[in-house]
Amino acid sequence: MAPKQTPSQTIGPYFSYGLTPEQYGYDYKQLVGNTLAEDGVEGITIRGQVFDGNGDSVRDAVIELWQADSQGRYAHARDPRGSNTGFGGFARVGTGTLEGHFFEFHTVKPGAIGDGQAPHITVVVFMRGLLNHVYTRLYFSDEAAANGADPVLAQIGPDRCGTLIAQRQDGADGPVYQFDIHMQGDRETVFFDA
């Protein structure tokens, strides 16, 4: 008999020392943090909050990013262009350490991967009360032309694709892209099943 997929369970409220120990002040090395850098490439900040159905910010969510480098290459064997920048592409942060329960990432803007999709980042969200993680995508407000030609945004349509577009603001430390995640409500973020 073919094995069945192991069921998902919630991450629960006590993930911090297991998944993000240094962020939460534990004396245990973390493998993944909120910072990705690429030599010679301008850094960007991605910042946002996760909101529940009451509009309250969620203080015990984990956000993960998976992204290509500035030239649109993934650090993975299935990307035929490989990645020779040393850019890992994976980042993780919990929402429990900044005032207002913000998440914040320091990374670079990914390049287009070359298949007609606009530059984007895969975003994975876990939290207490979420029995399966959700997938969403972050697109960039300063890529209007590319976004206009993106097949995934076109499939979603104008009513909801705005939930996936991070809004650029220029700050003293470079561009900041605001990206809030709404679990429910009028602005419920588009979540994917891939």
């Binding site: 159905g53 998976w66 650090a75 993975h76 939290m127 588009v190 099943d193 891939a194």
Partner: peptide, 27 residues
């Protein structure tokens, strides 16, 4: 499980074709 009603997505998940972004992952 009383934390789910305010945190569960209410709209159907959107089917996403599997592109290179989905076929790759952290190593």
């Amino acid at each position: 499980y009383k934390s789910t009603p305010l945190r569960a997505p209410t709209k159907p998940l959107v089917i996403l074709p599997q592109s290179l972004s989905e076929l790759t992952g952290p190593v």
